[in-house]
């Protein structure tokens, strides 16, 4: 708890920097708009201002400072603008509306969760296979490890299009991407976890003449839990990124990725930022929920 004050200070510092950054980022746009609206701006004419430093413009046009935090399409929206947009598009809109971020968030979240569950399930199964079979271990494990070092997300656009061409659309293609992105971290983490009992603990079970299955259920599986949860957290974050990226190539109209892309097409910066924050909140909630389950499970098992 003693880190509450430091964390709040750091967050306040970030917000302060953000507001400060809005000044130079937005001043040129603000001045152009002001001039068009008939205000006197020094120096006059966009051409004269183009090569001036943002700082000099701020000094010369102090009156425009509040406007840098209130533009409709700023280069960098101020924190409160993003917060208001988030509020408007979540709480104030009906969730069935195409402009509701809850709706878009749910589209992305459902694909994320479906893919995550599939990827995790398959990952755990493969990990069990790897731990129990030497040949699987030696054949597959190196490739699973290598897969962690390459940007497999690059496959995403192709998967969407290939599945589309054989008639699969909607949630499934995105879920496939989410699934394979969470699959590999879970395999690697789970294998590590199932192998975490040391030789002494395994020897102890041998003295009881325990079967392979008993060794798995009574020792390996419980021992793997901390590792499993660590990789689940990585996996769910990867799944979410996968679902978002999966919404980019087909010109999808719903989902957080679609909001990001549409925002960048039409220069709706506030919309981009609010979609970005919605994705961030979603990620934080997913990781947080997994963390809660982790503490509950580990506590139940007496491991914390």
């Amino acid at each position: 708890m003693r880190s509450v004050l430091p964390v709040l200070s750091v967050v306040a510092m970030i917000l302060g920097l953000w507001y400060a950054a809005c000044l130079p980022m937005n001043i040129k746009g603000v001045l152009t708009e002001a001039e068009r609206a008939g205000a006197t701006v020094t120096p006059e004419g966009g051409k004269a201002r183009r090569d001036m430093s943002e700082f000099a413009l701020l000094v010369a046009n102090g009156f425009a400072i509040p406007a840098t935090w209130a533009q409709e399409r700023p280069r960098l929206p101020a924190p409160h603008q993003v917060a208001i947009e988030l509020w408007d598009t979540t709480v104030m809109k009906k969730i069935t509306s195409k402009r509701s971020l809850v709706y878009h968030g749910w589209v992305t979240l459902s694909a994320t969760l479906l893919g995550f569950v599939i990827g995790t399930g398959l990952g755990i199964l493969l990990a069990i296979g790897i731990v129990h079979s030497r040949v699987m271990d030696m054949s597959v494990m190196p490739w699973a490890i290598v897969s962690q070092t390459i940007p497999i997300i690059a496959l995403a656009p192709m998967i969407i299009v290939v599945l589309y061409s054989i008639g699969v659309q909607g949630i499934v293609p995105k879920a496939v991407i989410s699934a394979y992105l969470s699959f590999f971290p879970v395999v690697v983490g789970m294998v590590k976890g199932l192998r975490s009992p040391d030789a002494m603990q395994l020897d102890l079970l041998r003295t009881y003449n325990a079967s392979n299955g008993q060794g798995f259920w009574k020792l390996r599986l419980p021992a793997s839990m901390p590792y499993l949860f660590a990789s689940l957290k990585i996996g769910v974050a990867a799944s979410l990124v996968g679902a978002i990226v999966g919404e980019l190539p087909t010109g999808a109209v719903s989902g957080l990725g679609a909001r990001l892309l549409a925002g960048s097409y039409y220069g709706q910066t506030v919309q981009i930022w609010s979609a970005l924050f919605a994705a961030a909140i979603l990620a934080a909630v997913l990781v947080g929920v997994l963390g809660l389950i982790e503490t509950r499970v580990l506590k139940r098992m007496g491991m914390t």
């Binding site: 430091p6 750091v10 967050v11 974050a237 990124v241 957080l256 994705a279 990620a283």
Partner: peptide, 17 residues
């Protein structure tokens, strides 16, 4: 003490967005 939790939090976000 302030930056570590914030940094850990940010590191888990979909920054590619």
């Amino acid at each position: 003490r302030g930056l570590l939790p914030v940094g850990n939090f940010l590191a888990a976000l979909p920054i590619v967005g």
